[in-house]
Design a protein around this nucleic acid. Structure first.
Lengths: 248, 248
DNA sequence: CGACCCGTTGATTCACGTCAACATTGGTGG
DNA sequence: CCACCAATGTTGACGTGAATCAACGGGTCG
């Protein structure tokens, strides 16, 4: 049940068998969260840290007038709310997109986790990558026209899914609705719809229902100005750094 | 010379005298960087971590067509590029806005820093807050009209400056040009200019050259939908957490 | 079968971008 | 001290990309 989490934590570095069993022991089995419900809400001062074991979730904020902005996606292995933990209270909400299996870790659990250099470092890494993605989204929303914006998020999702084995070289299943896509890239559903049509007509993607195929990945990326380096898939560099000490 | 850095690291918690002297020893005196020049460039694989001792800098990316998006501001005490360090290479650039004094820390230095629980925790905290700001910017750019966008960044800058004693309750010096403001909030200079005019005409701000006064802070914040909680100025909660162990 | 969510489309509006000129400021060197 | 220049701020006219509004079709679920 902690498979995804362990996979994530070992993406960086093999995890000592001891750490591995330690994680398994800690996480237990978690509980289910129904699609559409909050895992953690803005303003909450949770005593627990939530970790997604399976399913997908997203971070979001809503404005007074009801507009929503999605500010990140969470996949199995992700920690939801180190925020509520280290920083007073949550500054945004997290909702389950699909049915999710979520574990609640106590402060003590987190303490034990982060006391282990390898695990602590994995947490750091994951946080830095999430920050990098957020910055790239800022560029995407702030400076790109609608069609490139949509192309960019598609290219990102494709690669992220590819890396975890949930996409092929040239196709993937887009699990997001156009509404979610719109709230992610700062457009309306109508604009997203038209942007997708534009991408289809240009032959950059083709679509049957939610299955998206990308005939020429390079072409899509170029159009989207997508440079994958911000995803940092070659995680830690050969660094001696932190090999010995706890950078956490 | 390390004053600002120490101030930052102690914002969370008083730093043991020992840690304090340790920091002072490590940082040395740094070197000057002229305004407008990069402290760290996208794609760089720096062996060093840069820390701003004085002056201001910003993170940014530029698109193929020359458009620029500013994705964060750095103030004295901030670490520039844990990225280049933990994650292979820089995914964005950092430029000095004003003359900056910058120290270069080696891997060994960072190791020594982060080996100290208090300092490591301060790093974590600072990273989390930066992430929170980035997310709020995403909302700002993605979902707010031009005038609110500008109002929001003004409200944020005002508060951030106020906290470090560089603003009064009702006024501050806006050191950013309208061009920089525009690249921050994803608009053009013309739109920023008109948004500012709108704010002036509504009486939400008044301006003499770069000095901005805010007659009614609450009014501005309400208009901007600015809720300061994402800045997390009440840093760590009473948490026993990490009091004893190294969460870093 | 009806209710609802999702995708799609067309007509229209409007916020913001673009372009171009001009004013103002501040710094620099003669 | 003034002349010059570059960067910054301001303004108007105009174009356009995306929002808005509204309607409709298809799939799914109770």
């Amino acid at each position: 049940m902690a498979k995804a989490l362990i996979a994530k934590l070992t993406a960086l570095h093999p995890l000592p068998e001891e750490d591995r069993r330690f994680v398994e022991r800690i996480v237990g089995h978690g509980e289910d969260v129904a699609p559409g419900t909050d895992i953690s809400s803005e303003g909450a001062r949770s005593e627990k840290v939530h970790v997604i074991l399976s399913g997908q979730a997203y971070r979001y904020k809503v404005l007074p007038d009801g507009k929503r902005q999605i500010i990140g996606y969470l996949v199995p292995g992700d920690f939801c709310d180190l925020f509520g933990f280290l920083l007073d209270k949550m500054d945004h909400s997290i909702a389950a997109r699909t049915r999710c299996r979520v574990v609640h870790l106590s402060e003590a659990d987190i303490l034990k986790l982060t006391a282990r250099p390898m695990l602590a470092r994995a947490l750091w890494w994951s946080e830095l990558v999430e920050g990098a993605i957020c910055r790239e989204w800022l560029v995407n929303i702030g400076r790109r026209p609608a069609d490139r914006r949509v192309a960019h998020i598609l290219a990102e999702l494709h690669l992220r899914l590819l890396v975890v084995g949930e996409a092929t070289e040239s196709s993937f299943r887009l699990s997001l609705s156009q509404t979610e896509l719109a709230d992610t890239v700062g457009l309306t559903t109508v604009s997203v719809n038209r942007a997708l049509q534009h991408l289809r007509r240009s032959g950059l993607i083709s679509q049957t229902s939610r299955e998206i195929t990308i005939p020429d990945v390079e072409a899509l990326r170029e159009f989207a100005e997508f440079d994958p380096s911000y995803l940092h898939f070659r995680p830690l560099r050969e660094g001696r750094l932190m090999e010995t000490a706890d950078v956490t």
